[in-house]
Design a binder for these strands. Structure first.
Length: 186
DNA sequence: GACGGGATTTGCT
DNA sequence: GCAAATCCCGTCC
């Protein structure tokens, strides 16, 4: 039997070279495919912009945040609170430090669906075994990619709200999530 | 239900 | 030295 990812097209580079807020919204309903083993639908994202006090890129290029300044379509993983990794999708043109944090995913293939292992940025990376070895990889490899599974949400099906867990630029409406979805965090 | 602490890296002050 | 794009588990209402 063919797996879903075998006929789900990998998102092209041009998808990522758009306005970061647009990419954050359009990523809802797309799916992360890893090693032909895990497939999960993205249901919650947050945008981090260049002129955004809460973004790692705000103070310019560093050894940690360099993938954010690359051309869109890369993966930016960072380690936080001594225990967790967070995964971001780099967006926009080279030189612009912007990315979309993946906050929650809905397991479709390869993960036990009865456990809420993926509803939070630190938890989903643990469930999918994402760590710094994925940092700087691009999403165009069939063993590590984001695919279109034909799930499209209209604006009325998407919640736009304030970001979570930050202390700067808290009022910016840069968090996007699928409404009434049990996999969204909180 | 609501706090509060622990885990323990990275980058800025 | 300390806060951070987190989460879990304990205690005390």
């Amino acid at each position: 039997m063919k797996l879903l990812e075998d006929f789900s097209p990998i998102l092209p580079k041009k998808f990522y070279i758009q306005d970061t807020k647009t990419v954050a919204k359009k990523l809802l309903g797309k799916a992360l495919s890893i090693n032909n083993q895990y497939l999960c639908e993205i249901v919650e994202t947050e945008a981090y912009l260049q002129h955004d006090m809460a973004s790692h890129s705000y103070r310019g290029l560093t050894k940690r945040n360099w993938p954010m300044f690359e051309e869109g379509g890369l993966c930016y993983v960072y380690f936080i609170y001594g225990m967790y990794f967070c995964m971001n999708v780099v967006t926009n043109k080279k030189g612009i430090g912007e990315a979309v944090l993946i906050r929650s995913v809905k397991p479709l293939v390869g993960l036990k669906k009865e456990f809420k292992l993926c509803n939070g940025p630190g938890k989903l990376t643990r469930a999918l075994k994402i760590d710094l070895s994925c940092n700087g990889k691009n999403f165009f490899d069939k063993n590590f990619c984001i695919v279109d599974i034909g799930q499209n949400y209209s604006d009325s099906e998407i919640n736009i709200s304030k970001r979570i867990g930050i202390s700067k630029s808290q009022d910016e409406l840069l968090r996007f999530s699928v409404k009434e979805n049990q996999w969204v965090s909180r």
